[in-house]
Design a protein around this nucleic acid. Sequence first.
DNA 1: CATGAATGTGAGTAATCACTCACTATCTTA
DNA 2: TAAGATAGTGAGTGATTACTCACATTCATG
Lengths: 204, 204
Amino acid sequence: MANNVKYLPADERRAVIVDTVLALAAEMNPAEITTAAIAGRMGLSQGALFRHFQNKDAIWEAVMARAATVLTERAEAAAQSGASPMESLEALFFSHINFIVEHPGVPGFFFGELQRPGKSPARERAKELMESYGRLVGSILQEGKESGRFFERLDIPSAAGLFVGIIQGLVLQSFLTGERETIAKRAPGVFALFRRGIERGRSE
Amino acid sequence: MANNVKYLPADERRAVIVDTVLALAAEMNPAEITTAAIAGRMGLSQGALFRHFQNKDAIWEAVMARAATVLTERAEAAAQSGASPMESLEALFFSHINFIVEHPGVPGFFFGELQRPGKSPARERAKELMESYGRLVGSILQEGKESGRFFERLDIPSAAGLFVGIIQGLVLQSFLTGERETIAKRAPGVFALFRRGIERGRSE
DNA sequence: CATGAATGTGAGTAATCACTCACTATCTTA
DNA sequence: TAAGATAGTGAGTGATTACTCACATTCATG
C-alpha cells in the first residue's frame, strides 16, 4: 500500500492523492481526514499536497469527481447489459453494491458532503451525481412501465427514490455492524422485495 | 429562539444545551458544531457548558439519547395504534417521517455518528436505537406474516432493512434538495411501493 | 551533461479547537 | 438577611488545523 514514490508527474500525483483519500475514508470518518494524514499515508510532506491542489476543498472535489466518474461508468454499462428493464435494474443494483463493497469509503464521504450546507464544489458534484443517477434509474423504470412488465400505475419518482433508498439502507446497516460483508449479504433479499413492489401484479 | 436566561438549575440547563445542539444540527453539519457555537447560541460562555457536561462527547451522547428517547416513544405508540399490522406499519412510517420533519438535524447527527469508527458513547446509543427499532419493525412484520395478510414467504430481516432504507432514501433526497418539505411530499408514494412489496400477492 | 522546470521539504504561520480555573453573580434556605 | 451552594465568566491553556514559502532535489531536454 505504501506508495511513496517521489517526483511523480503532476497528474499522477493528483491521482495518488485522490486514491489515498479514498483509502483513508474507508478506515475513518471522512470529516476527520486531515491534510497531515493524507501526506503521511503517502510518505510525503503536507507542502507537496498544496503544490497540486489549491486547497483542501479542491482535493475533496477531485475525490468526489473520481467516485462519480467510476460509479457512473459502471452504472451505465450495467443499465445496458440487461435483456429486459428488470434485468437492467437488477444489474444496476448489484453493480452499485459491488462498487460500495470495493470502495467502502465512498458512501461516508458522500453523506458527509451532503450534510454540509451552502455549496462546496464537492457537494455540487455529489448533487450532479445523484441527479444523473436518478435519471438513469427513471428511464429504465419508464421503459419497464411502457413495455407492460412493471406495475402499470407505477410512480416513477417514488420508485427511483425507493431504489436509491434501499441502497442507502444497506449502507447504513453496514455502518452499524462495521462489517463490510453485511451489505452484499443482505442485498439480494432486499432487492427481491423491491422487485415485488414494482413488477406487475399477478392477477391484474 | 434566544434562550439566554441565566442561572438555570443544572438539569434544565442540560436540556437547553441538548436543544441548542439539535437546533444547530438542523442548520449546519453536525461534525462542525463547536462548543463555542453552542455557547454562543445560548448566550453563555463556553465554560458554562463544561460545568454541566464533562466533555463534548458527553454532550453528544446526551443529544443522541434524547433523540432516541423521543423517537422510540413515538414509534412504540404508533406501532400499537393500528388495527392491522399494515396499519401499524404505516403509522410507524409516518410518525418517523414526522419526527424527522420536526427535528431535521437528527438524521445528519445520526449519520455522522455512525461514520465514526471505534465506539464513542453516542455511537453506541445510535446502535442501540437502530437495533430496538429493527426489532419493533420485525415484530410487526412477523405478526402480519403469521396473520396471512403479508407475503407468505416474506424475509423479515430484508423487509425490516427495506423499511429503514426507504426512510433513509427520503432523508438523503431532502439533504440533496436542502428543502424540508421534500421528505413529507415523497413519503406516501414510496410507502405505497413498499406496501406492494410486502403484502400478499393478488393471485396467490 | 548542463540548465531550467517541475516536484518535494520542513520549519514555519495564524486561526481554531476542546477544555480549565480563579473569580464573580445569583439562588436557596435557615 | 447572612451564608453556603450553585451557576456563569472570561481570560487563559496546549494541541491541532489548513496552508505558506524559501530552499533542496530530481526530472526532462536541447
